[in-house]
């Protein structure tokens, strides 16, 4: 879903030589953003085709090596307590972590963006009501809510459903993250919408009789699109972190191990006390690098947007 949206976005940008294009070009001129984009691209690649990179996902039955081997030429990242290759697990984990991150970010953006735009454009009582709801979600601790919601949602969805090759357990996590993290997006989008609403082109659209929904679609959304992208990338980072935490405490799917699941396994295998640092290092570094890279990209877009607005004014 988010993948198709971004493809659509980039073709439209190319057609128009719009602000988004300029942002993309400026982004590539920053060294920090360039490195971050390279990292995310690499991770995406491993997420898309883990089999071609490291072969099929190893399980307890297909594991070939000895348990808890330190990193070596044959096992670059070492092996886990069941003799599985940690490089294999980490690369396969990238798919789960990234897909969960991207899907939850998509939910966040759709809910947060929609509510933000409606609240900002309609103003008055609608705005007040929607923002109080957003405030409520903002003060609810995501993690605690996730703990409560995860089993409930699993009951509701059922165990057999599968979307994008993702099993119910992970979908629950996606939904939980999505529903609990939209409020800050809504706040950002609302404030942007509030200032757009006062612009002459919106006023003139009202004048010629365009309906509010059309004004939002034609004038508000295209002008906050880049803000949404920037916010979305930061949300992805947050989602990956939340997913890792939930999987770490065992709410993940053991058959589709994410980085958090591997960390959880390391914990239950008492890796720290056995001195098997690589067991923790592989998934831990993967999470760290991904989150930092996403945050860098998101913040860089945000900064460039700020400058862009200043230049235009």
């Amino acid at each position: 879903m988010s993948a198709s949206a971004s493809v659509n976005l980039s073709t439209r940008i190319r057609k128009r030589v719009s602000g988004g294009n300029r942002i993309a070009l400026l982004l590539l001129r920053r060294w920090d953003a360039r490195i971050a984009i390279m990292i995310v691209s690499l991770l995406t690649l491993s997420g898309v085709a883990p089999e071609t990179l490291v072969g099929p996902l190893q399980t307890a039955t297909t594991a070939t090596a000895d348990a808890l081997l330190p990193p070596s030429g044959t096992h670059l990242f070492g092996t886990d307590d069941l003799g599985r290759d940690l490089l294999n697990l980490t690369v396969h984990g990238a798919r789960i972590s990234l897909v969960v991150g991207a899907l939850s970010a998509a939910i966040t953006l759709v809910i947060g963006g929609g509510i933000g735009m409606i609240a900002g454009y309609r103003g008055g009582r609608v705005d007040a009501l929607l923002m109080r709801v957003a405030d409520t979600f903002l003060i609810l601790p995501t993690f605690v809510l996730a703990l409560i919601l995860a089993p409930i949602l699993r009951e509701l969805i059922g165990d057999q459903t599968e979307i994008f090759g993702i099993r119910t357990t992970l979908l629950t996590i996606v939904a939980v993250i999505g529903f609990t993290s939209w409020s800050s997006t809504a706040r950002i989008v609302r404030s942007q919408t509030l200032s757009l609403r006062e612009r002459t082109f919106v006023e003139r659209a009202r004048l010629v009789g365009l309906s509010p929904m059309r004004i939002i679609a034609r004038h508000i959304f295209p002008n906050i699109r880049t803000v949404l992208v920037a916010n979305g990338i930061v949300v992805i980072a947050g989602s990956i972190l939340t997913e890792s935490t939930l999987s770490f405490i065992g709410l993940g799917d053991p058959f589709q191990p994410s980085w958090g699941t591997i960390l959880g396994n390391a914990q239950s295998a008492a890796a720290p006390s056995l001195g098997a640092w690589w067991f923790i290092a592989a998934p831990g570094c993967a999470i760290l690098i991904t989150v930092v890279a996403c945050t860098i990209i998101g913040n860089a877009i945000d900064e460039l947007l700020d400058r862009d607005v200043r230049v235009q004014r």
């Binding site: 128009r16 719009s18 602000g19 612009r199 002459t200 082109f201 006023e203 003139r204 659209a205 004048l207 010629v208 009789g209 365009l210 309906s211 059309r214 034609r218 004038h219 295209p222 002008n223 699109r225 235009q312």
Partner: peptide, 28 residues
């Protein structure tokens, strides 16, 4: 019809000129 003071503000930077002119026609 109305013509505003600031032509830079009256045109949405994200929309083509054709879309701008068509806006009223579409709405009506």
């Amino acid at each position: 019809g109305m013509v505003f003071q600031d032509p830079y503000e009256t045109l949405d930077p994200k929309r083509t000129l054709g879309e701008f002119v068509a806006e009223g026609l579409e709405a009506q």
